[in-house]
Amino acid sequence: MSDEFDRPEHDRFPSGSSGKTYGLMCTVDADAPAVEAKPEKSVQSWPAAFIRELLLFIVVVLVLSLIALYFDAPLEEPANALHPPNPAKAPWYFLGLQEMVGYDAFWGGIGIPGILAGLAMLAPYLERKKGGEGVWFHSSRILPNLIFITLFVTLGVLTVIGTLFRGQNWAFIVPW
C-alpha cells in the first residue's frame, strides 16, 4: 500500500494544469502560531476528534436501540373526529403553550411565544458586551444567564404542569 502514498505531494495532487498555486504544504508537530493571544494546545483531528465522535455515535445508537427495544411507542384507537379524548393534549413540547392558552388565548398561544422566539433569535444582538465566550456561567454574564435560565425554567415548569398535572377537563391533578 505504501508506495503510492510515498509519492511527493505535488505528484498526487497535480496542480500545474489547474493553475492552483496554494495547497497544504506540510504540518508541524507544534503549537499553532498565536494569531491573537496565547498559543492553543491542539491535537490532530485524526484520530483524536474522530474517535470521540464515533464513540458518541455508537453510544447514541445503543441507548436509543435499547429504549426502542424495551419501550413501545404509544398507539391508541384509530382517529375519530366525533370523540375527543378528555383531556386532549398537544405533543409534550407544545404543552407549555397549551397551558398558557388556558390562561389567555392570544397572549398564551401567540403573543408570549412570539416574543420569546424573537428574543431568542435576537439574543446575540441584544447582548453586545464582549467577554465570557466559551466559559460556563461566566461571571461577567450573570444577568443574561439569569434571564435566560428564568425564561427557560418557566417554560419547562409550564410544560411539566401541562404534561403531568392536567387531567380531565384540564383540571389540576396530582399524577401520583
Binding site: P78, A79, A90, P91, Q98
Partner: peptide, 24 residues
C-alpha cells in the same frame, strides 16, 4: 405526530393547529 392517525395523533394536531389559529 399526526401520521399514525390514532386518537392521540389526531387530537394533538387538532389542539396544536388550533393554537396557530389564534395568530392575529
Amino acid at each position: 405526530y399526526l401520521l399514525p392517525w390514532d386518537q392521540l395523533a389526531y387530537w394533538a394536531i387538532v389542539v396544536g393547529t388550533a393554537i396557530a389559529g389564534y395568530a392575529p
